[in-house]
Simulated assay, not measured.
Amino acid sequence: MIALLVCDDSMMARKQLIRSLPADWPVSITQATHGQEAMQAIRQGLGQVVLLDLTMPVMDGYEVLAALRTEGLAAKVVVVSGDVQEEAMRRVLELGALAFIKKPAEPDILRQTLERLNLLGQPAKPDDVPLRPAFELKVNFRDALREITNVAMGRAAALLAKVLGVFVELPVPSVNIFEVSELHMTLADAQRGERYSALCQGFIGDGIAGEALLLFHDSEIADIGRLFKWQPKDERDVSEMLLDLASILIGACLSGISEQIDVRFSQGHPQLLGLHSSIESLITVNKQRWRKTLAVEISYSLEGHDVHFDLLLLFTEDSIQRLTYKINYLMN
């Protein structure tokens, strides 16, 4: 019997991964929601084989791999992640992972990888395979949407990394339902006193609609220009550069979401909401269009550069029911 540890902060991701395991693989399964829990389980002998996510709170996958090496623990790790940057793959293999599988893991690819690494052993009879976790609790809507966004933002980061030649540091996305006044207060409090340039791009498809809002810190626009190998001469040049960056990030992120929930989004052209504005003025000008909204927030950072930008996906209140249906269908 093999002690298998599945480590991911998302219940949806763990559920999908456990469902994808070979049915004839005789494993006893332990679950961990972040790297610190994973390390405790491995020290107790519950992680001979580990399926490990990268982007997690408390202790991420990179830190787990580094800790395993430091402590000399013999766990055999396969990384299963939505961060599909080439540099992310290179780093985890360098840290000792045996393989990298992109989320969501396809059952055939998972089996082939386990076979290639000689981790499957002899197939077992059905009666000899322990029952898998039943997941009687429904996956929380916010957890599911956060995981779908996690996969989508990983694809957007991979494209951005390739275009700019950088490594993109990915956060755990946050999902909240806000009244416009709460959205205003949350953003204004987080970005107090800073000046921003902002763009938005509308999207709609199959009863789901919203706007993607991309915020750039004004203090970092010159650094963005250097990465693009572009020296904006005036406001028009700055606008054009930011529109190009918005097209990369928003387009790839929406494409990643649409593929997972099987919805084809029609996207408007990115529009500049304002250059060098305060958050307060941006929200005030646009409060009529945002009202009550489901907000998914992603904060990207570029390693080695003082560049950060915030992407908010603002779904209309009317979209929540349809999103819930699509996510439930995906899970069942």
Results as ranks from 00 to 15, higher is better:
261 I>A: 04
113 T>H: 04
292 K>M: 12
322 R>I: 14
202 G>R: 13
215 L>Q: 09
297 E>C: 06
283 I>R: 06
216 F>K: 03
63 E>A: 14
166 V>P: 06
235 E>L: 13
251 G>Q: 01
213 L>V: 12
100 F>G: 06
244 D>T: 02
26 P>E: 02
111 R>Y: 08
83 D>F: 03
110 L>P: 01
231 Q>E: 15
247 S>K: 15
49 V>H: 05
45 G>C: 08
185 M>F: 09
110 L>E: 01
168 V>G: 08
22 P>F: 06
322 R>W: 02
147 E>W: 15
138 K>I: 02
161 A>G: 14
54 L>P: 10
231 Q>C: 08
190 A>E: 11
59 M>Y: 01
264 R>Q: 15
146 R>L: 07
272 L>C: 09
234 D>T: 05
155 R>S: 11
165 G>L: 10
63 E>I: 00
260 Q>M: 14
305 H>V: 08
161 A>T: 00
196 Y>E: 06
33 T>R: 12
176 N>L: 05
206 D>N: 10
126 P>T: 02
98 L>W: 04
237 D>S: 14
29 I>E: 00
283 I>E: 05
87 E>N: 11
281 S>V: 14
287 K>P: 00
280 E>Y: 10
31 Q>Y: 01
114 L>Q: 02
94 E>R: 11
98 L>D: 02
303 E>M: 11
250 I>P: 07
123 P>Y: 00
105 A>T: 07
217 H>R: 14
308 H>C: 10
308 H>G: 02
143 D>F: 01
74 A>T: 12
85 Q>L: 01
233 K>L: 15
28 S>K: 14
205 G>N: 12
146 R>D: 03
172 V>D: 05
228 F>G: 02
31 Q>I: 02
14 R>W: 03
53 D>G: 07
323 L>G: 10
108 D>Y: 09
129 V>T: 01
26 P>L: 04
323 L>Q: 06
281 S>T: 13
131 L>Q: 12
152 A>K: 07
261 I>Y: 01
304 G>M: 05
223 D>F: 10
262 D>I: 05
7 C>E: 10
309 F>L: 15
35 G>M: 03
